[in-house]
Simulated assay, not measured.
Amino acid sequence: MPRASTEVLDLPVAVRPEPDELIRAAMEWHFHPGTGSRFWLERARTLPFDPRSDVRTHEDLRLFPDVAAELRDVRAEDLIPQGYGKHPDVVGVFESGGTTGVPKRVVLLRDWLERMLHWSNANLDAHGFPGGVNWLGLVPTGPHIVGEYFRRSASSHGSHGFTVDLDPRWVKKLIAGGRGADAGAYAEHLIDQAGLVLRTQDIGVLTITPPLLERLARRDDLAELVNEKVRAIRWGGTQLDPDSRYLYKTEVFPKTVLCGNYGSTMILGFAGERPDLPEDSGCVFDAYSPYVTFSVVDPETLGTVAYGDRGRVLVHHVSKSFFLPNNLERDTAIRIEPLAGHIGDAVADIAPVETFEDEAVIEGVY
């Protein structure tokens, strides 16, 4: 059988590859001794199949084990495909939130960042986000990839990015230790800082988590500032229920575009809210297919549930810079039919599981 060409991995950002052609190219790239990462080349020796010859379609990705937990201990250098050469364009090494124990690590390369930003900015345009305005983000920075995406989104779709740093690990530690009042005081401290920026700067887009948006909305002076200045709110990190979404869109911030995203460090990005959803509905999230795909599955059998049913979110990431199949996320969701031409599932009504990898799941403010 002839080996697949890897050229499809370098298509222009505006061009979507044929899904199975992408899979074959990725298998050749990630498991060829001259281009694959040390992690996957070593891991391939333990697999009862040959990825380069046996994995030909998107469905074949189910042959792989879920190795996400192993990313807690792997050297960052060993995750970079060797085909990038001695000086790969690494944007940063980022960690998961630590919700379920020791953080996992991923490496973000520039080619994937640019591809993801192009897709994300197109989604913002579809929602009517203004371009060329200043952004304010109450988001985790430091080791968290969301902070990097915020900065890049602010500069590529907007103008300048103002940030209020959010430490989700500290909030979760406070809550786990029974110090809910301290966690609440920390959240109010974040809102205080956001208020300083809103009062003094021209902010057109606000990026924030639902728990912090709720606190901001309680302060009449800040809610008035948002209505006066902010033209769009992008929320994520935790979920926003349909009733709150409707209230924000129709009563609290009626002149402001409200748009959510759903993602995680392990997928190196996020899914975007589907445009033109009814105001009184919940959010439906579409992944960046075919590079990132969701399946909503029964966690015991890993079989796909019926449309409209709830199951665990299983994620595949397949790109030139990163490969992580069969990642069973800590979230459950309702399975929704995908957009025409997309593979995998859309997801709605995201909710965390109570425990994940034998650890209690604490969301806090992110």
Results as ranks from 00 to 15, higher is better:
Arg72Asn: 05
Asp280Leu: 04
Asn261Ser: 09
Glu300Phe: 10
Gly237Phe: 08
Ile362Leu: 12
Pro65Ser: 01
Arg62Phe: 00
Asp349Met: 08
Gly344Phe: 06
Ala187Met: 01
Ala122Gln: 15
Val133Pro: 09
Gly92Pro: 01
Phe150Ile: 03
Asn261Pro: 00
Glu273Trp: 08
Gly34Val: 04
Ile191Cys: 09
Phe294Glu: 07
Ile334Gln: 10
Asp78Asn: 13
Asp298Glu: 09
Val292Ser: 07
Ala223Gly: 03
Asp192Pro: 07
Ser155Arg: 15
Thr141Asn: 14
Pro48Arg: 13
Gln193Asp: 03
Leu190Trp: 02
Asp111Gly: 10
Arg115Tyr: 07
Leu108Thr: 02
Leu117Ile: 15
Arg215Gly: 05
Arg110Pro: 02
Ser96Met: 07
Phe253Trp: 12
Ile80Tyr: 02
Thr301Ile: 06
Pro81Val: 00
Ala76Leu: 11
Ile350Ser: 01
Asp167Leu: 05
Ala44Val: 12
Thr256His: 00
His144Met: 11
Asp192Ile: 12
Ala183Val: 05
Thr209Gly: 00
Ile208Lys: 06
Gly161Asp: 09
Arg75Trp: 04
Glu337Tyr: 00
Thr301Asp: 04
Gly137Asn: 14
Ala68Asn: 04
Pro168Thr: 06
Val8Ala: 07
Tyr149Met: 14
Glu77Met: 04
Asp276Met: 04
Glu21Gln: 14
Tyr186Ile: 04
Val313Gly: 03
Ile80Glu: 01
Ser153Lys: 15
Ile350Leu: 11
Lys229His: 11
Thr141Pro: 01
Gly97His: 03
Ser153Tyr: 10
Thr207Asn: 09
Arg335Glu: 01
Ala360Asn: 02
Arg219Ile: 07
Thr163Cys: 10
Thr304Trp: 06
Glu300Asn: 14
Leu174Ala: 11
Ala126Thr: 07
Pro17Lys: 11
Trp112Glu: 06
Glu279Gln: 12
Pro65Thr: 01
Val93Asn: 01
His87Cys: 00
Gly83Tyr: 08
Phe129Asn: 09
Gln239Arg: 07
Asn326Ser: 07
Asp345Ala: 08
Tyr149His: 15
Phe94Pro: 00
Asp111Leu: 13
Leu109Asp: 04
Phe294His: 14
Ile175Thr: 06
Asp286Gln: 13
Leu222Lys: 08
Ser120Thr: 14
Arg38Lys: 15
Asn123Lys: 15
Asp54Ile: 04
Val171Thr: 13
Gly269Pro: 02
His30Cys: 06
Leu328Val: 12
Ala69Ile: 12
Ala14Phe: 05
Arg105Ala: 07
Phe129Asp: 03
Phe323Asp: 04
Val297Tyr: 02
His127Val: 06
Leu190Ser: 02
His58Met: 11
Val313Arg: 12
Lys173Phe: 05
His342Thr: 03
Asp280His: 15
Leu79Cys: 02
Glu363Gln: 13
Ala25Asn: 09
Ser155Cys: 08
Arg38Cys: 05
Ala340Ser: 14
Gly236Glu: 10
Glu273Gly: 07
Val107Tyr: 11
Arg151Leu: 13
Leu11Tyr: 11
Pro278Asp: 09
Ile336Thr: 05
Ser289Met: 10
Val139Cys: 11
Arg274Thr: 06
Thr207Ile: 05
Phe64Ser: 03
Leu108Val: 04
Glu329His: 14
Gly97Glu: 05
Pro17Ile: 04
Leu138Trp: 13
Asn327Met: 12
Glu70Val: 02
Leu9Tyr: 06
Pro65Gln: 01
Val257Trp: 00
Thr250Met: 08
Ile175Val: 14
His127Asp: 08
Phe39Asp: 11
Ile80Leu: 03
Pro17Arg: 12
Pro51Trp: 07
Glu148Ile: 01
Asp243Trp: 11
Phe64Thr: 01
